[in-house]
Design a binder for these strands. Structure first.
Lengths: 169, 169
DNA sequence: CGCTTCTTTCAGAAATGTGTGAAGTTAAGG
DNA sequence: CCTTAACTTCACACATTTCTGAAAGAAGCG
């Protein structure tokens, strides 16, 4: 695990600090996007780790938070399919892994999200009726979300294609 | 302002309550999407109003909050271009209006948002280098966001087309 | 030019959210 | 089957956010 630390004892510390800076910046952006703080930090740390996976203890130490905080964060992240939990066989340790290289898929797989929105809009249209300005305005929104739902599918297909191409060529 | 209230004194109240229910539900979803509470409520109220515009006093009364709260909410909404402010000539009253029928454009005009993200990812790639798993993983994310930025433009164009078509035919 | 009406700003109270420590639960290993 | 390591749950303290009331700031109108 140890690298050579004869000449430069601070190498590891500097590296760790640099990683931490990136993790915190990335996490801040996830927070801005609506994710709560601790899940954001855990997720950023996992993404920045060499194996894309860390144990609870490693996360706890790196982020300087209690195991309890890690536990809560991981529970959330697993729920929204951003990380998976692995048991290391022959150990009580658990290992949390970022979901493949396509975690950002989850960002767009907000199907449930879109559905809820559509439901609300439909109710609004029903309530106000298409013969009112409100009703029409809300109906426009509904149609936009229906359109969006359709489009996101094909967008992700194009991404898959784009990505395959760039791997091959 | 008063409607006939001879037969059914509760008509207006029921209507108001129904509107409120929709407003609150819609607002809750905006909150879920990351907007803060009061701006969400104000925005939902505006969208559900007949003219798509209300005065500060009207908002204050309908949402049962202080003028101060309305002021703060509107300031935010104007900043992110979701509402515009109009002065009623010959009155000190201000009228707040939802930005056209295409407010949802704003949802996707998150260019600045995407840019920030890209910047962070680029820094991560630089820091770790493409010869590390982390670096490659983060680079994948960067490319996804670049792809997304490109795609969102054409998506909105298709939406404009779709919409024009449905208006005409 | 002062009066009045509406809006904004600001300090602080109330509500909400977030992380910790301690106790509880599960499962490996002797 | 008991011990012990690891993770989880829960009550509470601390921090942050959010709304209010009061006072100050603009802008029409006499």
């Amino acid at each position: 695990m140890d690298e050579q630390r004869t000449d430069n004892r601070t190498d590891g510390d500097d590296e760790a600090e640099a990683v931490s800076r990136f993790v915190e910046r990335f996490a801040a952006q996830l927070v801005q996007a609506g994710m709560t703080r601790m899940p954001s930090r855990v997720f950023a740390a996992l993404l920045s780790s060499e194996l894309g996976a860390l144990t609870s203890a490693e996360l706890s130490e790196q982020l300087k938070v209690s195991p309890a905080a890690v536990s809560g964060a991981v529970r959330y992240l697993a729920q929204v399919n951003l990380v998976s939990r692995e048991r290391e066989p022959g150990s009580r340790r658990e290992r949390y892994r970022v979901q493949g290289d396509q975690w950002y898929n989850a960002l767009l797989e907000r199907d449930a999200f879109l559905r809820n929105w559509q439901t609300t809009m439909r109710e609004g249209v029903e309530q106000f009726g298409l013969d009112t300005p409100q009703g029409r305005r809300i109906n426009d929104t509904l149609e936009f979300f229906l359109f969006l739902e359709k489009e996101l599918g094909s967008l992700m297909q194009r991404w898959a294609a784009h990505r395959a191409e760039h791997l091959g060529g």
